[in-house]
Design a protein around this nucleic acid. Structure first.
Lengths: 153, 153
DNA sequence: ACAGAATTGTTCTATATAGAACTATTATAA
DNA sequence: TTATAATAGTTCTATATAGAACAATTCTGT
């Protein structure tokens, strides 16, 4: 079968991000896509380490490190070393970041409505369960690559 | 309903691209995600203008311009002005680019198999038709934004 | 206790991506 | 015909992203 799931996904991601950033800007929220994803996971669970953010966003560790840098500069996040495990860096939301959540989620909801235009609730659920399955497959694949199977000779 | 289609899409895109680029590299194909997308549309239809590539890949025009630059340097593409409309730049595949197609598509197929692991053919089709619908919605939205409705006062 | 392995982040470098401003060309309308 | 608008790309600038190499810290087995 001729399929092109990956190509579609990439295109949608591109468009979605451009449109979402425009909507955010129109609503006075100066947050980019990468930054939004980090906030998204922190709003659910605060604080988190760099590594945890990396896993939950599927961004590479070094990417998270760099993006967090920018957000610390902007006063959105703070970083501090975990005293119990000094290899870890703990990232926390500032009060300012917390104050953005409601407005951000409103715009998010608008984006979602656009995204799923013409979908029945059932279709949405089916579609998201497909996405969740693919995400799981790909995550496992990357894990497998990073931890190659031991060679029990 | 609590949905997070956009977040999923972005995560999948991230993982998918990292894994696909690794597979390509393992098979001796030194082509990045962005470059691959441009080749993908040119293999279907060659040559194309910058603008046409932009529409078909959903990449911004300036992005296409820059990525094509790199590919011209690598001997994958050539650019020339359209003599019939000298504003346009026509991008063509080189023989080298054509020679890559078969190998690239083999790896592409591998990636696809991984991507749709555990999906029945029907599920794949359903899923891709969902993607196509979303892509259409977002494309139309961006069009609307670029060409704001005339004010017939 | 301590050498080597594993974990966790960061830095360095290169490419990808897009908005804004710009240049060149072609189309349009008066 | 010519001034203005529309179209097509490019350049400038800034951020996003990740691989590779590295540094610091903690864990493990002896």
């Amino acid at each position: 079968m001729e399929t092109k799931g990956g190509f579609y996904i990439t295109q949608i991601k591109q468009l979605q991000e451009r449109i979402f950033e425009r909507l955010l800007a129109e609503n006075g929220i100066e947050i980019s896509g990468g930054q939004g994803r980090i906030l998204f996971v922190l709003w659910k669970d605060n604080p988190l380490t760099i590594g945890e953010i990396s896993v939950r966003t599927s961004l590479a560790k070094n990417t998270v490190s760099v993006v967090v840098d920018g957000m610390v500069h902007k006063g959105i996040l703070t970083r501090q070393t975990n005293p119990r495990n000094r290899r870890q860096t703990i990232i926390s939301l500032t009060a300012y970041a917390k104050s953005l959540q409601t407005k951000y989620e409103t715009v998010s909801q608008q984006m979602n409505t656009l995204f799923y235009q013409g979908f029945t609730p059932e279709e949405q659920m089916t579609f998201e369960s497909f996405l969740a399955r693919i995400l799981k497959t790909l995550t496992k694949e990357e894990q497998t690559y990073k931890k190659p199977k031991e060679d029990h000779t």
